[in-house]
Design a protein around this nucleic acid. Structure first.
Lengths: 135, 135
DNA sequence: GACATACATAAGTCAAGTCTTATATATAGT
DNA sequence: ACTATATATAAGACTTGACTTATGTATGTC
């Protein structure tokens, strides 16, 4: 499961919030916190924890009969980077468009090529690196 | 639909990437780009664009018979903040735990209260603000 | 060893999302 | 007005995911 798919679920997001805020938590602790708000069963929570584990968003260690869950930052950082990149490219484009308009450039080299769709390029951001870090 | 739910879909993520990288695009332009990679029909893409519109992740303007799509940063920024917050609280906690251990604090005030679950608090991050910006 | 506790897994149900094909709507051009 | 193009919507099939209850498995306790 993809990071964003995992994050799409409100219960799972809340679990991450609780871990981040409260520090490590036993599975039972998570159940207690989440059950109150969402009114779901222990197995339901356990299944969400499984998803989080499979996506490497959490760490687990056993302690007696308990399983202690903790956060793993890396996947979150990855998602964060994706968002930052997308936003970055877009605003960079906006800036480029702005300066271009300010310069009053009117000549549009129109290669009349195969480019059937899309809006005229500003050129400035055309050389920007590739954002699709996450396939 | 929630921002993260919207972002959970690979096609939609790619659309956003294309918009960010290529600037504004007509619906047809999006179809052309996405169809190649995912092999889905025009209506399928149109439905994804609808989801993006409904979640305010894109802007649309009409231009003749075309609909020109652009990116809206705000919802992306919101998601980014959520991620940054969660990560921030967690690493802050880690740091607090680290310094605590370094100080060699051994006395644990144990109120023996109702706190049935969870791991002993470090205390440092206990006063941290609330990360649940996104309900 | 028997029992309780903490947690995970199994099996089945139900709702929601993502496609498909077919069709509607709107604008432009002739 | 007729036709073509661009895009959206409708209806239905199919899949997937998120619950439920019931049960399994490990660990600790007496």
């Amino acid at each position: 499961m993809d990071v964003f798919e995992v994050l799409a679920e409100p219960v799972r997001r809340r679990v991450l919030e609780h871990l981040a805020r409260g520090g490590e938590l036993s599975a039972g602790g998570v159940v207690a916190l989440v059950r109150e708000e969402f009114g779901i069963s222990q197995p339901a929570v356990s299944q969400h924890l499984r998803v989080l584990r499979d996506a490497d968003l959490v760490t687990v260690r056993q302690e007696g009969t308990r399983r202690i869950y903790g956060l793993r930052e890396e996947p979150l950082a990855e998602a964060e980077r994706w968002l930052a990149d997308v936003r970055g490219f877009w605003s960079q484009r906006l800036d480029a468009l702005g300066t271009e308009l300010a310069r009053g450039r009117r000549q549009r080299r129109a290669p009349a090529g195969a480019r059937a769709h899309g809006i005229p390029q500003t050129g400035a951001a055309a050389a920007a690196p590739d954002p699709r870090r996450m396939a």
